[in-house]
Every structure is written in C-alpha cells, then in structure tokens.
C-alpha cells in the first residue's frame, strides 16, 4: 500500500505534471525573494503583453515537436508576415482585418512549405526549417530594401495595445490559440494522428491514414501561429522590421522542449505554454535582478541546455523505473 502511494506520488511529480512546472515554482520564489518588484501586478501585466508573441509561437512549435520535428523557421516567418502585413496596409490601403488574414495566410504558406520539404523531399526538419528561415529572411529584407515599414493606420494599434473586457487583447489571443491548440490535440482525430506521427508513424500508416498529410498540416499550424504573432508584434511596434523575429525561434524551441521534453510523441498545449512562461520569467527575472543584457544570453543558453539535459535524464530514469517495476 505504501509502495503504491510512493508510486502515485512519483507519477504525479515526474509524469503527470511537466517537469518545468517545478523549476518554474523554484525560480519564481527565488526572483520574488531577491526583488520585491517581481511579484507585482504591473510586472505581471507587462509580462503578458511582452510574452504573447512567444507563447503563441510555442503553441505552434509544440505541435511540430510532437510529430518529431524541429521548427526553426517561425521567427523569420513571423518577421516576413509582419512585413507583408504592413506592406499591404501601407502600399495597397488594405483594411486591417483583410491584412491580418493575409498575414495568417503567408504564415500558413511558409509552414506548409516546411511540411512539403520534410515529407515529399525527405529533408530533415531542422535543415528544412533553417532553409525556410533563410528564404523568409531574404524575402523580408528584400521586399523593402531592408527598411522598416512604418506609418500604419491608427486603428491597427488596437490589437497590440488595447483591452477587451479589461483584458489586454494579446492575452485574449494567447487564450484563443491555447484553446485552439488543446482542442486540436486532445479533442480531434487530427490530434491523435499528430501524436501517432511522433509515437509510431508506422502504426499510423498501417491504419491506412495519409500520414504525410497530417505532418504537413502540423507544420502549417506552426506557420499559422507565426502569422498571428506577427499581427500582435507589428501592432505593438506600429511598424514592421524585417529581422525583428530572429532569435525568437530559439526561445520558442526552448519553451516547447522544456514544456514536454524533446522526445517525439509527447507534449501538451499546457506544457508548451508553461515552457514559454519559464522562458519569459527567466528573461524578466534576469532583467529585474539587473543583470546586464550582454550577460543574459550566456546565462540563458547555459540554463537552457542544462534544463534539456536534466529533463532528458529524468525522463530516462522514469523509463527505467517503469521497466524495473514491470520486471517484478
């Protein structure tokens, strides 16, 4: 009986709750103990606004990650979507709502491109998405000679800066994308196939389903999130800058990996969001502690690779414990 309780506790700590949650709690305690500004409402609201972009990207990346792929193009695709968005509004006088739709379509297009590279052309996902990154950056830079596009219609600033029912619109966007992602993953056959792609692609093929289609769709979905994030980012800055998203893909990748291990076939929307929040709080906490920007990246990278290694080792240990239990 006691052993059984122990097992349940272990399952709760190590399996049911993403490991990142525990790290998150420790980190929050540390930051709030060392600086009283950390746990304030103003800081939380600020985090939300800043973090919307990252969390939305994380939710797309987690879907690709579950299929067993690595997505490194979304930062660049987001920049490109922003450029297109601004360009059609400024140069073609397109109304914002149409421009937003176009931004999402561009995102989906580039996501689908990734999917095609991976499925039909057999290119490993990290190379395919790096290639797409290059293509997107090149287009974003080339389309306006490397210049920022400004002078967006006044109305457009609503998305990034206003509230709806007292809640900032970016937060609404996070909530919507979160709900969409978790419904897709948990409540639809598509979700089952996404998990199947990562867990045992052969099983999916044996069941007679077009595995390639679902893989392409997973990448398209990640592209869509890049398109949505681009709208918020561009509206907040009221300008589109061609390289604004570079580096974002790393934070999104890190969030997705931390929220659900790098192992294919595993992960949840909640994990993706928690991983994203971890990154946000780490960045925010380092700022509040007054660590200079030029040191932050080094700490960031090191913490991240350590976290990946630790979560991998935990994962393996759990697997071993499970095997031993079964042997008995």
């Amino acid at each position: 009986m006691k052993a059984n309780n122990g097992k349940q506790l272990r399952q709760f700590i190590l399996e049911k709750v993403p490991t990142v949650t525990w790290i998150l709690i420790v980190m929050m305690i540390y930051f709030s103990a060392s600086n009283s500004n950390f746990l304030t409402f103003a800081n939380a609201a600020n985090l939300c606004r800043q973090g919307a972009i990252l969390l939305i990207l994380c939710l797309g990346v987690i879907v690709v990650k579950i299929t067993g792929g690595i997505e490194l193009s979304n930062g660049a695709v987001m920049s490109l979507c922003g450029m297109v968005l601004a360009w059609v509004m400024v140069n073609m006088n397109m109304p914002p709502y149409l421009a937003i739709i176009i931004s999402m379509l561009v995102g989906i297009l580039f996501g689908t491109l990734n999917g095609i590279f991976v499925t039909f052309m057999g290119i490993p996902s990290f190379v395919a998405t790096l290639g797409t990154q290059g293509i997107a950056v090149g287009l974003a830079l080339g389309m306006n000679n490397g210049n920022v596009i400004g002078g967006l219609p006044e109305k457009f600033s609503i998305i990034g800066n206003d509230n709806f029912l007292n809640i900032p619109i970016p937060l609404w966007a996070i909530i919507l994308v979160f709900i969409l992602t978790s419904v897709l993953l948990n409540k639809t056959p598509f979700g089952v196939y996404v998990y199947a792609l990562g867990g045992n692609e052969e099983a999916l093929k044996l069941s007679g389903k077009p595995a390639w289609l679902y893989k392409v769709l997973a990448y398209s979905y990640s592209g869509l999130t890049a398109g949505i994030a681009a709208c918020i980012l561009t509206s907040r800055n009221m300008a589109a800058q061609p390289t604004v998203g570079l580096g974002m893909e790393f934070e999104a990748f890190a969030g997705a990996v931390l929220g659900g291990s790098y192992i294919a076939g595993k992960g949840t929307a909640m994990g993706g969001v928690l991983g994203g929040i971890f990154i946000l709080i780490l960045r925010n906490g380092l700022n509040i502690l007054g660590i200079p920007t030029y040191l932050q990246l080094a700490i960031f990278g090191t913490v991240l690779i350590t976290a990946i290694v630790l979560s991998t080792l935990v994962e393996r240990r759990v697997q071993k414990m499970r095997d031993e239990e079964r042997e008995e």
Partner: peptide, 27 residues
C-alpha cells in the same frame, strides 16, 4: 504497433476514431 504515450482506447481505434459531428473525438 502501439503508441506508447497514448491511451489504450486511442490505440484500439487509431485511424477509425469515433467522432461527434465528424470533427471532435467522442472519447
């Protein structure tokens, strides 16, 4: 040919999921 991280029911019905309105899984 099983998916290790998914439920027994999902595995049994892989590829022939029961749905509501053709969209959502009828778990």
């Amino acid at each position: 040919t099983l998916l290790p991280f998914r439920s027994v029911a999902e595995n049994i019905f892989l590829g022939r999921e029961k749905t509501l309105a053709g969209l959502f899984l009828d778990k």
